[in-house]
Nucleic acid binder design. Structure first.
Length: 277
DNA sequence: CTGTTAACCTGAGTGC
DNA sequence: TGCACTCAGGTTAACA
């Protein structure tokens, strides 16, 4: 479920329900996530008020009211492949894989659900400085640091496929399998091209298309996930706008040529052999 | 260093 | 219905 647009949608949906609320209690039912929820997490979070939310790549951040007036302690939430968060009434029936509750002071809970447990919930004390997980991350796609010139410079000498390059979180965050495929289609670039052989002009177009696709998806996520708090987890919000992802064998929506499928770095990669060079 | 692969884990879907 | 098998939106550790 979660690429950048969905994480951003979830962040926007949950923000009015959690900001201003105090975390009255932490209930850990299963700490075995991508990294275990540390034993001291409850002590870290309980009694703290959430003052804002933010996002870095696919990491969702809950900012806690400083205990000393200045320190920006945060809770990190990552959804992995199958994670979801809901804001529910505290007595809402528990489902399998409901691993964590942040019980709020208004009778509701922020509930973390993740069947595959590839996600994470971690404390990020301000004293730690830049978190190790954020250390190696590339720029945000909507920041000035992300540009065609940046991609061009970063890719010189690289022989890896441009799609693999684009999906590398150290290059840019937020371009997962779907949006990497869609951006490359819109930019007319074949996913298999060695990154080092893609021209500056092509990267300039690609950077613009990455932003365009992510922004469109966020806009749509915002509408279909409006009932976030009710939380039945709408899906398929961007489906009707996909040009290549999951469309193997179907006619290209631009030229009619059947969409091809190949595997790159163990991930499905669809492209149009006519539109992408 | 770069690039590729396996691994983490469960559930859904497919084919026999 | 059951079983075996494949695949999935992410990321990192371990390799060559």
């Amino acid at each position: 479920m979660p690429e950048l647009p969905e994480v951003e949608t979830i962040r926007r949906g949950m923000t009015p329900h959690v900001v201003g609320r105090t975390i009255a209690k932490v209930i850990v039912r299963d700490a075995r996530l991508r990294w275990p929820i540390p034993l001291h997490f409850a002590a870290f979070a309980e009694g703290r008020r959430v003052i804002s939310t933010s996002r870095r790549g696919k990491y969702l951040l809950l900012h806690l009211e400083p205990l000393d007036g200045v320190s920006d302690d945060k809770i990190i939430i990552h959804l992995g492949m199958s994670g979801r968060v809901f804001v529910l009434d505290a007595n809402h029936a528990l489902l399998k894989h409901d691993h964590l509750d942040l019980v709020l002071d208004d009778g509701r809970v922020l509930r973390y659900h993740d069947p595959r447990r590839f996600g994470a919930v971690l404390p990020w004390p301000a004293a730690e400085g830049e978190h190790a997980l954020m250390q190696t991350m590339g720029p945000e796609p909507f920041s000035d640091a992300f540009s065609g010139d940046y991609l061009f410079a970063k890719s010189r000498g690289k022989t890896a496929a441009v799609k693999t390059f684009l999906m590398d979180g150290g290059v840019v965050v937020g371009a997962g399998n779907i949006y990497a495929a869609e951006s490359l289609f819109r930019a007319g670039i074949r996913p298999t091209r060695p990154a080092g052989k893609v021209t500056r002009a092509e990267f300039t177009l690609l950077a613009a298309k990455v932003r365009e696709v992510l922004l469109e998806a966020i806009t749509q996520g915002g509408t279909t996930l409006r009932d976030f708090a009710g939380a039945d987890g709408a899906s398929g919000y961007f489906q009707q706008d996909l040009y290549v992802y999951g469309r193997e064998g179907l006619p290209c929506r631009v030229c009619g040529t059947p969409i091809k499928l190949l595997r790159l770095g163990n991930r499905q990669s669809c492209y149009c052999p006519q539109c992408q060079h």
